[in-house]
Design a protein around this nucleic acid. Structure first.
Lengths: 342, 342
DNA sequence: CTGCTCTTTTGGAACGCTCCAAACGGTATG
DNA sequence: CATACCGTTTGGAGCGTTCCAAAAGAGCAG
């Protein structure tokens, strides 16, 4: 038999139409909630859909629209708890609005970023959220601008909407906290894995504050390949040398925790001999054993705003020039900072 | 003009065909690497593709095949570093084989799991990797079996291929380590967020070992809603009561770290008064301040095997009955375990 | 009952690809 | 020189939707 619903293939819109005694267009109209449908027709169609267990074929719809309802998320390093927490929140908010989520973990490397973006474009994602953005070349921009709505959860972006914590101010708060405690030799330490726009904004906040205080900024970078190594000099030397910093502002908690670990291994007591401020307030920072002074960002709000903004662009509620939404971060003083040693 | 390549719309296979002076079928054959194509034709087509900057429309292809090249990944809790690390690895391996990855974070809740799976099926993912599997009902099974290839990174599965660490043996190693140190009152503590098949296997390993040693297993569960609370009794009571355990086997490192934190707050010295063994060997477990004795799983191998197995099923290289691949885990002794207090 | 307007329904043309059976063209064979 | 055969190319029929212009129907005034 032809129209047998249980005959292998899932029912199509035509099967529903036949069963309801209407045309496929009418079924389509009902599904999509088009206006001007008689309640009677509506009922007939709904009934047929129920009876057949019909589900619209999303792939066919995507083919017509040349667009999916998938959001691409570019993330720096999922092993960084901050990214992981954000990824989780974004996935949940997106799901609540009917979007699915596709990730690309860039490790801060531009090639991976570009390759990931190309894949996302090819898959016709509805929009992209940058949780990290290398900003290294303008490939991403030429690839996406005007084609795929993009939201940056990063202070600086070349184009697209921005939803971010005030990273610069955050770094200022961190630095001022240390200055207020009496530190002078305060260094900045950049993310172990991802150096991106966020990192740069925080670094700028640190630099400005130092310069305004008449002090010289000093910046270190973790060596990506080898853990526990700085690009500029061996970490041991940096932490124990004659002109060693008495305090560090780290670009994020993960780096700060690494720093604490190095100090522990070198038996440098924190905070008595060394103060450390992190950034992000990841769950672990609050543990008694870590007890890290840090700058907290409202993660849930960042996630919600970024999804809402992107959805707004996609659905056309939001149009016009890129908008910028900044949420403020705050200092959380814990036990990793104290007055400098005499 | 009609055939103008720079006129808005991206070129289709027809544009390429016209330019190369062949039929669209031939272009299709070249793209898909079909056999029996003259080098000359091949060259003409490739040239036209180059010149037009043509990229096949993946959505149209998906429409024909009724299948995407997206892998669904069901994850329990991205905030758990173990899941995050696995997610990251899987994303990388999948990308290397030309697959994209779509996540669903279940928090161990069956409704979210089922909803996520339905979304993935609707999106026609090519296959699904379960990093966590509730196993609560057989909805997932009826939804997926025989339709979508599935790989479980979990010892027990209702159907589909299995790639897992030997969780039961791991838990035995952990328990035996504590027994060997002289502990008798050893309790098990289940994951703060996700209770799933993995959790159950580990619990079983613990139970067996205890019973074989003539001891009574005791199992606690973290209260999901309220952090730092056990379902069975307030954590303070459990850790300080008269019959308190002298050691804990935790279903994973995240829970073990929570346990350490509770001990710290109650000023119970670890390992002198309390020993704790985790499971997973997440990055943080190795930090001097955490220094957690734990069971390590070869994460990279698990990730690689699961992607390879799934890809094998999808691409038809692998067929027949479900296969089971087990990798072994090993005990890493650090500073969170010692002989029990007298 | 006719003609007009407004609402509701409908058939058909996309969307861009894959797949298949049939057509084609060239070489070897009888 | 006709025939058979094999490797290569091709047109056309799908895949399951959406969207639009046009048809059909309903309601009302004249």
């Amino acid at each position: 038999m032809e129209g047998d619903p249980s005959a292998g293939k899932p029912p199509t819109i035509l099967d529903v139409a036949k069963r309801a005694g209407v045309s496929k267009s009418t079924v389509s109209n009902v599904i999509r909630g088009a206006p001007n449908i008689t309640p009677k027709t509506q009922a007939k169609v709904t009934k047929a859909i129920e009876e057949l267990g019909y589900r619209p074929n999303i792939l066919a719809r995507q083919m017509v629209h040349q667009r999916t309802t998938i959001l691409g998320v570019v993330v720096g390093d999922l092993a960084n708890p901050f990214y992981a927490e954000m990824a989780k929140l974004i996935e949940r908010f997106a799901a609540a609005r009917g979007y699915r989520v596709m990730f690309c973990n860039t490790q801060g490397e531009e090639e991976i970023e570009v390759a990931g973006l190309e894949g996302m474009i090819e898959q016709r994602v509805a929009g992209i959220i940058f949780l990290a953005y290398s900003g290294a070349s303008n490939r991403p921009r030429t690839l996406l601008e005007g084609r795929v709505p993009s939201v940056f959860v990063t202070c600086s972006a070349d184009w697209g909407d921005v939803v971010c914590a005030d990273d610069e101010r955050g770094a200022r708060l961190a630095t001022e906290h240390l200055l207020g405690l009496g530190h002078q030799r305060i260094a900045y330490c950049a993310d172990p894995i991802v150096e991106d726009a966020t990192d740069r904004a925080r670094q700028a906040g640190y630099r400005q504050t130092m310069e305004r205080a008449g002090l010289t900024p000093v910046v270190y970078h973790w060596e990506r390949a080898e853990a526990r190594l700085l690009r500029e000099a061996p970490v041991e030397e940096v932490l124990t040398g004659p002109n060693r910093p008495t305090a560090f502002v780290s670009s994020n908690d993960l780096g700060a925790i690494d720093l604490l670990d190095c100090a522990d291994h070198l038996e440098i007591p924190v905070p008595r001999r060394l103060s450390v401020v992190g950034f992000d307030n990841v769950m672990l920072a609050g543990l008694a054993r870590i007890n890290l002074t840090t700058i907290a960002q409202p993660k849930e709000m960042l996630a919600r705003l970024s999804v809402d903004t992107l959805a707004g662009r996609i659905e056309g509620e939001l149009s016009g020039d890129p908008i910028r939404q900044t949420v403020s971060c705050r200092l959380i003083v814990r036990g990793s900072t104290a007055r400098p040693p005499k």
